[in-house]
């Protein structure tokens, strides 16, 4: 289990190279979140984080995922600071005996990271700056677990 909160970019291939090598692993799933620019006006996204609580909150999510889906390994890298359109924001990888567990656990991670990991996104566009608001759907997504 590896959890990293950093401002630097990460190398996806390198992060996955040594991931899920335990002999009882039959499936790995990885997800990468990128900075999206729907209107072509985004200059950058500022990601603020709560040092300490971020790592603790993600560890709590990871512990539950490992237990529920008997994961053989998991990995979360989440960035903060100024990110440009197309930049990688975060990644999560899960390793399990079978693919269903690996896929489901990755979705669980994403739903919980969205509204339980203390990060806040601010979009700075040509027309001004605005904090990204949490959606009701994000909170609702937790109910399925």
């Amino acid at each position: 289990m590896r959890i990293t909160v950093q401002s630097d970019d990460f190398d996806l291939a390198e992060a996955l190279r040594e991931f899920g090598k335990a002999p009882n692993t039959g499936a790995t799933v990885s997800f990468t979140g990128l900075v999206r620019d729907d209107t072509c006006t985004l200059e950058y996204m500022e990601i603020e984080h709560y040092p300490g609580m971020c790592e603790a909150a993600i560890a709590k999510i990871a512990e539950e995922a490992v237990q529920r889906w008997s994961l053989t390994d998991c990995l979360v890298i989440h960035r903060y600071g100024q990110l440009r359109p197309g930049d990688q924001i975060m990644m999560v990888a899960t390793a399990a005996r079978h693919r269903a567990e690996a896929f489901e656990a990755a979705e669980f991670f994403m739903d919980y990271l969205k509204s339980r990991a203390p990060f806040w996104k601010k979009e700075v566009t040509r027309d001004g700056a605005d904090w990204v608001a949490a959606k009701d759907a994000d909170e609702d997504a937790l109910k399925r677990w």
Binding site: M53, H78, L113, S115, W120, A133
Partner: peptide
Amino acid sequence: VAFFPPMTGG
């Protein structure tokens, strides 16, 4: 004690 808006991670 920390105060903040709903989180928007991921």
